[in-house]
């Protein structure tokens, strides 16, 4: 018992500091994760907004064209390949649109992709006659 080492002030301070550093590292890791998620979420949100705007415009043109993909392509500037209208935007979005005849109207399916991930899938319909 007489050989017991007495802790110095500096040693106690160092231990206290190490505990503080550990707490700080934990908090920094949590905050770092949150920052990264915030960054990713805000980027995704911008892309999703653009995708919705593009999809909405494409749907309006589909209706204006009476459900005809070639006419829709002329309005939006895309190409029809194997019955699928493909539109590529400057922001890297890819819109695909297909159409088929239903009883009394033309139905279509509109999908928007970004980085091979499907962001939007809408069913669209045109009750109009082809102009």
């Amino acid at each position: 018992m007489e050989n017991r080492v007495r802790p110095t002030r500096a040693g106690l301070f160092a231990i206290e500091l190490l505990i503080a550093v550990c707490v700080f590292v934990f908090c920094a890791a949590v905050c770092g994760g949150l920052f990264v998620r915030a960054e990713v979420t805000s980027r995704d949100s911008v892309v999703l907004n653009r995708a919705v705007n593009e999809a909405r415009s494409a749907a309006e043109c589909f209706k204006a064209a009476g459900g005809d993909l070639d006419a829709t392509a002329r309005l939006l500037g895309g190409d029809v390949e194997n019955g699928v209208l493909v539109i590529k935007t400057d922001e890297g979005l890819i819109l695909n649109m297909t159409s088929h005849e239903e009883e009394g109207f033309t139905a279509g399916e509109l999908t928007v992709y970004y980085d091979d991930e499907r962001l939007i899938r809408w069913d669209v319909a045109s009750l109009e006659e082809t102009p």
Partner: peptide, 20 residues
């Protein structure tokens, strides 16, 4: 030993400050 301990504590404190 006490001097080395103080120096180590100071270094850790500085690293802590910079990281923060």
């Amino acid at each position: 030993r006490g001097g080395a301990g103080t120096a180590a504590s100071l270094i850790v404190a500085c690293v802590f400050g910079v990281a923060m």
